[in-house]
Amino acid sequence: MSFRPTARLFEAVAAAPRQSFLGEVVGTKMQRTIKVRVPKVKIHPIVQKPVTYHKTFFAHDAKEKCVVGDYVRIDSCQKISKKKNFTLGAIVKPAARYVEKDGTVHTQKAPGVGEVDRLAKAKEVKGIEHM
């Protein structure tokens, strides 16, 4: 058995992703693909104040477990398709999910969603039958 340091070094380098970004999922309309918006803060050259720029990346989500609003880490990988160079690393912060009475799941609070629930809760607390 001979020790080959180059082989271990190569394994360590191959295991670590070259790039990784943190961003918010803004789209899940494609099969096994998520659209991630990554913010980048730069100092404006003239005003000398921080300005946030954004770039969107397509990432591979094999199990389709992300929803719009999740904060995720994406890692670079070998090119999967024309625009996909990243895979889903981890879900850092899952999005809030709201379930209506008919079973419809919303990932982001839309206007009007939950209004009925608040009214029903107020009726229960105050003991009012009609309102």
Rank of each mutant, 00 (worst) to 15 (best):
A7V: 15
F21D: 07
R8F: 15
R37C: 02
A120G: 00
K126W: 13
A12R: 03
A12D: 03
P5T: 05
G127W: 00
G23T: 08
V38Q: 08
I74N: 06
V68T: 06
K49H: 09
T104P: 01
A95I: 09
K101Q: 12
D75W: 13
E129R: 15
V25D: 02
A15L: 14
S20E: 13
V38H: 00
M30N: 10
S20K: 14
K123Y: 09
D75E: 15
R118P: 00
V125Q: 10
V72M: 06
Y98S: 02
M30L: 11
K101C: 03
Y53R: 14
G127N: 02
Q108G: 06
S76G: 03
V99W: 02
R97A: 06
T28Q: 02
G27T: 01
Y53D: 14
V38W: 06
G103A: 02
F58W: 01
F57M: 01
F3Y: 15
F57W: 08
A14G: 00
F10C: 01
G23P: 07
K65Q: 15
P17Y: 07
D75N: 15
K79P: 09
T33A: 10
A62C: 10
V25C: 05
R97C: 00
Q108Y: 10
R97P: 07
V51L: 11
Q78A: 04
Y98D: 00
A62P: 15
K83Q: 11
K40C: 10
K83H: 10
K42E: 13
V38N: 05
H60C: 04
E24R: 09
M131Q: 14
V72F: 00
P94I: 00
F21C: 04
R118W: 10
K63T: 11
A96C: 13
E64K: 11
E129D: 13
T56N: 07
T56L: 05
T56Y: 03
F86Y: 12
F3D: 10
M1H: 13
G69R: 04
V36W: 02
R4C: 12
F58M: 07
S76Q: 04
V25A: 01
D75K: 11
V68I: 12
R32G: 04
G89H: 01
V26D: 05
M30Y: 05
A16H: 10
S2R: 11
V13M: 07
V125P: 05
